[in-house]
Amino acid sequence: MKTLMIDLKWIPRALGLGLLAFAIFGPLTNLLLWAIAEKWYFPHALPLQYGFSYWVNVFSPRGNATGSLLMSILIASLTVVLSIGLAIPAGYALARLKLPLRGLILLILLIPQAFPNLPVYVNIARIFYQFGLNGTVIGVVLVHVTHGLVYAVWIATAAFSAIDRELEEAARSMGASAMRTFRDVTLPIAAPGLLASAVFVFLESLDEFTGTYFVGAPDISTLPLLLYTASSGGNYQIASITALILLIPSIAFMLVIERFLRADVLSKVGR
């Protein structure tokens, strides 16, 4: 009886893990099925015919997936360069200098995340139209940077805060200038955190839809816009294939983040 009761205790845990696995892998399985389904309609639980003809259509010149992918990578790369370029001096200043209202500055960086995206981007699109930035790569990059800076500055601040000040003081005592100390000591140690920050910004930009739609469409076409167009038109195979293309770099880069973003860096976020 005791053994039976011990076994029964695992039933709720098994059910919970099963539901969690279904919530995670159920949509992914459905996505994979739609990506290789040639014919699939109600009431059939599984596709009636499998194939890869839709993959050929997506990557054909008329499918526009290759151009949208290259555009997404270009915009995400420019967003990373601009965001990290601003985050390194900002993060170092917030971590090392005794700035007044430091906590308020970090809080202000969260403001773009605090408001609904739709009204914000509608107003940004109106302003950008006056400066001729609508439908341009630069305009889309600037919109993406407003969100990317949140990750970039917060993680950069944590990365610089995690560095032992005695290492910098030792370099200065050996005659190194402040700039050389930063270049040869501080920056290399903070590099893993900055790399993780760059990955977060890249993924945020790669998946961004709303800002790209209001500022860039129809002149700028990215994978999220292609995904939206396909899904709204009922082309679920094309939408699923596009979603899988977006999923691959997300999984790969999250593995990079898990490797380089250390616990001591995470403990400094927001401090």
Results as ranks from 00 to 15, higher is better:
Phe25Thr: 06
Thr136Met: 03
Gly216Cys: 00
Gly18Cys: 03
Leu261Trp: 03
Pro61Tyr: 11
Leu261Pro: 02
Ile220Ser: 02
Leu17Phe: 15
Leu94His: 01
Phe202Gly: 03
Ile245Val: 15
Val201Ala: 10
Ile248Gly: 13
Leu255Val: 11
Gly270Pro: 00
Ser60Leu: 07
Val256Pro: 04
Leu97Cys: 14
Thr136His: 10
Leu8Lys: 05
Phe214Cys: 03
Trp40Arg: 08
Thr222His: 05
Ser205His: 06
Pro119Ile: 04
Glu258Arg: 12
Pro43Cys: 03
Phe42Lys: 10
Ile111Lys: 09
Ala37Met: 00
Leu70Trp: 09
Ile248Met: 11
Pro43Phe: 06
Ile36Leu: 14
Tyr50Cys: 08
Phe160Gln: 03
Ile248Trp: 11
Val81Thr: 05
Gly148Ser: 07
Ile105Asp: 04
Leu31Met: 08
Val56Ser: 09
Pro100Gln: 05
Ala217Tyr: 06
Ile73Cys: 12
Leu104Met: 13
Gly85Phe: 09
Phe253Leu: 10
Arg126Gln: 13
Gln49Thr: 12
Ser161Asp: 08
Asn117Ala: 13
Pro61Arg: 08
Thr242Pro: 04
Gly67Ala: 07
Asn235Gln: 14
Asn117Trp: 08
Gly135Gln: 07
Ser232Arg: 14
Ser240Arg: 01
Ser221Tyr: 14
Ile105Arg: 08
Asp184Trp: 10
Arg262Thr: 15
Gly16Asn: 10
Pro61Thr: 13
Leu149Phe: 01
Leu15Trp: 11
Gly139Met: 00
Ser205Arg: 03
Glu258Val: 06
Thr186Met: 04
Lys268Asn: 03
Met254Asp: 14
Asn57Cys: 13
Ala158Lys: 01
Ile6Arg: 13
Ala45Pro: 06
Met179His: 11
Tyr236Gly: 04
Pro100Thr: 12
Ala125Ile: 02
Leu223Pro: 00
Arg13His: 14
Phe22Lys: 12
Leu195Val: 10
Ala45Asp: 10
Ala178Phe: 09
Ala156Asp: 05
Thr79Phe: 00
Leu78Asn: 02
Ala45Arg: 08
Phe253Pro: 01
Thr181Phe: 03
Leu167Cys: 15
Lys39Glu: 14
Ser68Asn: 07
Leu46Glu: 13
Tyr92Val: 00
Gly175Ser: 06
Gly139Thr: 04
Ile84Met: 07
Trp154Ser: 01
Tyr236Pro: 02
Leu118Trp: 01
Ala196Pro: 04
Gly67Val: 10
Leu86Gln: 09
Thr210Tyr: 00
Gln237Ile: 04
Leu261Met: 12
Phe209Gly: 06
Asn235Arg: 12
Leu86Glu: 01
His44Cys: 10
Arg96Asp: 06
Val269Phe: 09
Ala159Arg: 04
Asn30Ala: 15
Ala263Gln: 15
Leu149Asp: 00
Gly63Asn: 04
Ala93His: 04
Ser68Ala: 13
Gly135Glu: 07
Ile241Cys: 02
